[in-house]
Write a protein that binds this DNA or RNA. Structure first.
Length: 469
RNA sequence: GGUCCCAUCGUCUAGUGGUUAGGACGCUGGCCUCUCACGCCGGAAACCGGGGUUCAAGUCCCCGUGGGACUACCA
């Protein structure tokens, strides 16, 4: 009796750039799928393109995955380190007559492709070298002998069965002249050897799948299950790219997005659970499965991501948000040594910001030594008429029995009542005195966070400011 | 050109033969209110087209149309 095989998924990016939105969603789906089913998630770096692969890209991808919370159980495994294994597999196919050497030049091939296209024929390899019985020579490549008859069916977990006629397929190159395997061959060998049971990837790979299935069969390996997730498009319905705005996961971190928001946004692109919009990671692990993944492409909608970010921002415990804010505050030179004060600041601001950047920007007045008054605000509210009122407030404040939000609120109400003025007649001058601006958190909130001393000090400085103008 | 995939509000989506076609973002009217947010209540907004099948079709089938992917010695 054999134990049930553990489910194994993988994410296999090529290190030719940062981790982008589409790749992140593919990784997320793989991660969630394996977690949901108690399987393993493997990370493999497909770096067989020696020209375009870089270590920086590898690092950037790993960083982005870590930031998103997509931990891997095995790897990273570097495909380029496995070339000997790939070559051995190629050799096996050659020995078994399932693959052959080809010496057609790229130029000639390109020429023939053009001609075929111009003549309205399908541009596939013309079998020139197929039965020449060539051996390895400098510059030769290895081609897979693809069956010319029969059909190959991809039983896609998301799209259902997809049928391909084998004669549509090609004698694809499996080993390049430089001795490195091509993508379609390396994935098959690696996925087979790593025991990948479920290949979940972008649906730009569906047309590769029948060739890969044929390779699995030629190699005598079990064919895994496939699930092709739809693409992510830009607003113009074209494949998402830089011209649609930020596509790098880490760019979103820098723009002040929370990983929870990005994950939540990404998972809803193509997957749903009834009407639910907000999911914790735990919920996702419990709920996610391929049967609820849609088949159609989705347009990336930055507004909704922003809304989710705002949602997480206001739902986050202030103390935790302080940690996320650190790099942004440091970049602005705020003195943030007092953790309690920082948390109070965040508490005041978190329902008023859509990103960490916005939050950090709006926190400036809390950390400034001297309030910088906006010209218009000062002109309108820091006047000889309001100065006496401000003075009266500053004077009364120390006598407050209850220096709390409620206490301050009550004080201000009785203050304006006694003077027969509206609350806003004192609130706006106070706001400008305290923050320099006409838009800010509530007066009571600010006064609490700032504390009595700073509050009085700022009011007095505002009065002095009036005297000077 | 060929092969393959896809098609519900502007966008993300629910829907699994019988619904006033639901939710969310965005937009918008109002309420709350010391400003700004938050929050709450309301509104406009969709089944690509044409044929079938069926008593009944957004849901099933076919054909169009539109979009996308692939068609490399990239992955």
């Amino acid at each position: 009796m054999t134990a049930p095989e553990t489910l194994r998924t993988r994410f296999a990016p090529s290190p030719t750039g940062y981790l982008h939105i589409g790749g992140a969603r593919t990784a997320l789906f793989n991660w969630l799928f394996s977690r949901h089913h108690g399987g393993k998630f493997i990370l493999r770096i497909e770096d067989t393109d020696q020209m375009r692969s870089t270590d920086e890209s590898t690092r950037a991808i790993l960083d982005a995955m870590t930031w998103l919370g997509l931990s891997w159980d095995e790897g990273p495994i570097f495909q380029a380190e496995r070339v000997e294994i790939h070559r051995a597999h190629v050799q096996r196919l050659v020995d078994e007559g399932k693959a052959y050497y080809c010496t057609c030049s790229q130029e000639l091939l390109e020429e023939k492709r053009k001609q075929a296209l111009a003549a309205g024929r399908k541009p596939k390899y013309d079998f020139t070298c197929r039965d020449r019985g060539l051996t390895r020579t400098p510059g030769s490549v290895v081609r897979f002998r693809c069956p010319e008859i029969g059909t190959t069916i991809v039983h896609d977990l998301i799209k259902g069965p997809i049928q391909f006629s084998n004669d549509e397929l090609d004698d694809l190159i499996i080993e390049r002249a430089d001795g490195y395997p091509t993508y379609n061959f390396a994935v098959v060998v690696d996925d087979a050897q790593m025991g990948i049971t479920h290949v979940i990837r972008g649906d730009d790979h569906v047309n590769n799948t029948p060739r890969q299935i044929l390779l699995y069969q030629a190699l005598g390996y079990a064919v895994p299950q496939f699930g092709h997730v739809p693409m992510i498009l830009g607003a113009d319905k074209a494949r998402l790219s830089k011209r649609h705005g930020a596509t790098s996961v880490m760019a979103y971190k820098e723009m002040g997005y929370l990983p929870e928001a990005l994950v939540n946004y990404l998972v809803r692109l193509g997957w749903s659970h009834g009407d639910q919009e907000i999911f914790t990671m735990e919920e996702l692990v419990a709920l996610f499965d391929l049967d609820a993944v849609g088949r159609s492409a989705a347009v990336f909608n930055p507004e909704k991501l922003l809304w989710l970010n705002q949602h997480y921002l206001k739902a986050y415990p202030a103390e935790l948000l302080v940690e996320n804010l650190k790099p942004f505050w440091e970049a602005r030179g705020y003195p943030v040594s007092d953790a309690r004060y920082s948390a109070r600041v965040v508490y005041d601001l978190q329902s008023r910001a859509k990103t960490l950047v916005e939050l950090a920007d709006s926190a400036a007045f809390y950390f400034a030594d001297a309030v910088a008054y906006e010209a218009e605000a000062a002109a309108k509210f820091l006047t000889p008429e309001t100065a006496p009122q401000l003075a009266a407030v500053a004077e009364a404040l120390p006598g407050l029995a209850d220096y709390s939000r409620e206490g301050i609120e009550a004080f201000l109400r009785s203050f304006v009542e006694a003077r027969g003025i509206k609350l806003k007649a004192i609130a706006q001058p106070l706001r400008v005195a305290l923050t320099g601006r006409t838009v800010s958190p509530g007066i009571d909130e600010i006064m609490i966070t700032l504390g009595l001393a700073k509050t009085q000090d700022r009011i007095r400085k505002a009065i002095a400011f009036v005297g000077r103008h």
